[in-house]
Nucleic acid binder design. Structure first.
Length: 106
DNA sequence: TCCCTGACTGGTT
DNA sequence: AAACCAGCCAGGG
């Protein structure tokens, strides 16, 4: 199992408000792990399917796109889910981070 | 304990 | 603007 940092990462992800998104690097930084963007993706990969408390769909890469890799089938689903929260996508299928990126006050 | 892999990122080409 | 390259760190075999 995860040695601990995963829980910290999940905690940050759960703080992302509905209708907002955060980048992997951002989540890592907020979790106190500045250069662990990849570990964030790793952590989310290890997330149990029945965990509906962690909105992993709100975590996107620095381009504002859904990073799929091993779950490409979930991308379109993800997009609809986010759109349902009020997040808009541009023609290239990317989220305008300037407007939708979560800006935590603390 | 060593080696390989990977939901990423930023800079270059 | 898109594709490529190399750095980055931790988990699992």
């Amino acid at each position: 199992m995860a040695s601990g940092n995963y829980g910290r990462i999940y905690a940050v992800v759960r703080r992302i408000p509905r209708g907002r998104v955060a980048t992997y690097g951002q989540v890592a930084a907020l979790a106190g792990l500045p250069r662990h963007a990849r570990q964030v993706g790793y952590a989310l990969h290890s997330l149990p399917d029945d965990d509906d408390a962690t909105p992993w769909q709100r975590v996107v890469n620095s381009k504002g796109e859904i990073s799929a890799r091993c779950h490409p089938y979930a991308v379109p689903q993800q997009r609809e889910l986010l759109e349902g929260e009020g997040v808009k996508f541009d023609k290239a299928g990317r989220i305008p981070l300037a407007r939708f990126q979560w800006n935590p006050k603390r």
